[in-house]
Design a protein around this nucleic acid. Structure first.
Lengths: 350, 350
DNA sequence: AGAGATTATTAACACGCGTTAATCGACAAT
DNA sequence: ATTGTCGATTAACGCGTGTTAATAATCTCT
């Protein structure tokens, strides 16, 4: 219940040294400058007084806040049902904690991007930022390119020169659809993970197209639906898509979250997976292995993505030149129980 | 590409006023002090120069960071698979954004609590904090009681005097189990949502006991298992519990996340829900309505909890005396398809 | 032992803004 | 015109720390 805030001055006084010495002790960079016994004295004094360096003062003086920002590109309504997010946050927290950094979470409204990015960076609330799920139509990104603040994209925007960490969405999606084709399916529907303004969504859709083309299957636009991150949208889109059944025997759903909703719609229609419809998801969120049926899906190493993004950003913060400004994390098709060889009956049906 | 940072001094110069005037314009409190036309001049100058008040300097001078902390009481490994979290974060972001506050996410390691709380509060990185899922065995909480910093618990700790926002876990759990009993079940198992060191876990377990006692059903400790937040632990515990089958015809799983794993274990054992086992979950996460079968569960208004916590904290920050330091959010049993009347066969079996 | 070289320590300024108390200016009443 | 009053504006100090350049202390070598 100390009524007065304790500052480095108090510590200095108690330790019988100057304030600068205290400051040196607490900025671990130049360890060698202070004699070990002096350092010890200071540490003890600080301990006794319960001294914690003031973050704001430190940030002001040193011009770095020791905090990084995680910027989300969608509204809280969609954030609330994104089961990919905890993995990202968990991964970031892990690294950030080790590096003694803070993690600030922000959300940017479409149309406000430039303003928000500038505000965040200029106000120096954060030293750098990670942008989760960037959008093609984000004018703020080009603005960021011209600014000094370190910034890493979790996801790739083709025209954009910012450093990024991503998976190869297009190739991974193709992998998934290839597998369906390999199982004998020729009529394959698709539900995206999000609006195509999100790079991951359009890239995964491209992968779907690639696979069909490679197998000489004509693209049927009527078998494509656009979802919105969550299971509810997957349910709605699948329900709509089922009007076309049995014009398809398999489906690629570009997000496990969305796939869960799609599964429910299929069950509600009295059909089953994989007997009537084979389904491949994307992301391999931790729950995917427990869905009914257990989801065949593309494993996206969320933790690794988070960690690599964070490492990359930290390198940029230190002014180091990273080995590469762009990092691609490999994915992997996980085969579980939501897919199977096409039924002979199905082949004759159409 | 301004090579020099723009400060309030620059704005003042361009607007032809003093720095103080600029400061007054940007702290919206005392609007009346500045003449509208002067205000306008300042705003235009700021706009033209691209001025953003420096957060650190502001925090240092005013002694408030305009940032609140969300403190999580478990390791990143468990954070990564918590599907309740996005709802909380979404809810907080919404409010925090409106109030022009920042949201800092932290994680506290068991054993480090006091140290971490002190560091966070004394360093003034944050003005106040919300502690998610508090633990009984957290010695930091009593430390916090004696400190000036505003703090709100999301969850209740009986011996603890800190303000909190919570649901009535015990009564809600009882509600869920009551419903199972009402359906004719007398042999009811239970899997907790987490270790009993977490208040919500032990309270929900208490509710389970209450219900049994109220119905004069003897408690069978061998039908209780402890899970760890995620589906994987639910799977493991259910698998173990199934050794006791058919000594139970229904189960209360105190978290939808965990319930998903339990469902998978039941399916894997060749049984079905609700035909062989009725299952009630807890939380009503957005996905629960899409599980197979759709989960009967206790709806926990996560968004509301987040919002109320944030509002309460903001009141405390402003120094206002809130109407109540403790807020209880009502829950509701949502009946879907994972529960049904007990089979006659089951009754005769035992 | 004394001069030079090296290291440990400190004084002093800077960081950008909030805020109080004092100053300035305009306008009304006398 | 002078004084008084009130509101708009500013000067100046403080917030707590980082950091450079200068000083003090210690050590090395002849």
């Amino acid at each position: 219940m100390n009524n007065k805030r304790v500052t480095s001055f108090d510590v200095a006084e108690l330790a019988g040294v100057s304030r600068s010495t205290v400051s040196f002790v607490f900025s671990e960079d130049k360890q060698s400058r202070i004699r070990p016994e002096t350092r010890q004295k200071v540490r003890e004094a600080a301990e006794k007084l319960g001294y914690y360096p003031n973050a704001s003062a430190r940030a002001l003086a040193s011009n770095q806040s020791n905090t990084i920002g995680l910027i989300m590109t969608r509204s809280p309504r969609y954030i609330a049902s994104d089961n990919f997010l905890p993995q990202i946050i968990g991964g970031l927290l892990d690294i950030v904690n080790q590096a003694q950094l803070g993690l600030l979470i922000e959300w940017v409204e479409p149309g406000q991007q430039i303003e928000t990015y500038l505000q965040l960076t200029r106000a120096k609330h954060i030293d750098g930022m990670i942008i989760l799920t960037p959008r093609f139509d984000d004018p703020g990104l080009t603005a960021l390119e011209q600014i000094d603040i370190p910034c890493v994209l979790m996801g790739q925007i083709p025209e954009c020169d910012l450093p990024y960490v991503d998976i190869d969405n297009r190739a991974s999606a193709k992998l998934a659809v290839d597998y369906l084709i390999e199982l004998g399916h020729r009529q394959i529907a698709c539900i995206t993970n999000a609006a195509t303004a999100y790079s991951s969504a359009s890239q995964r859709l491209e992968g779907y197209r690639d696979a069909l083309k490679a197998a000489d299957i004509a693209l049927d636009e009527s078998l494509i639906r656009i979802a919105d991150f969550d299971a509810a949208s997957g349910y709605t889109q699948m329900k709509d898509l089922l009007k076309e059944y049995p014009r398809f025997s398999a489906i690629f759903v570009a997000s496990d979250n969305v796939a869960l909703g799609a599964l429910a719609a299929i069950h509600d229609a009295g059909l089953s997976v994989p007997e009537d419809i084979s389904l491949v998801g994307f992301d391999d969120i931790p729950e995917a292995a427990f869905y009914y049926p257990k989801l065949t899906t593309v494993h996206t190493p969320a933790k690794e993505i988070a960690e690599e993004s964070c490492h990359l950003l930290m390198q940029l913060l230190k002014g180091e030149t990273p080995f590469s400004r762009t990092i691609n994390i490999p994915t992997q098709l996980i085969i579980r129980e939501s897919t199977r060889m096409i039924e002979r009956s199905h082949i004759t049906t159409c």
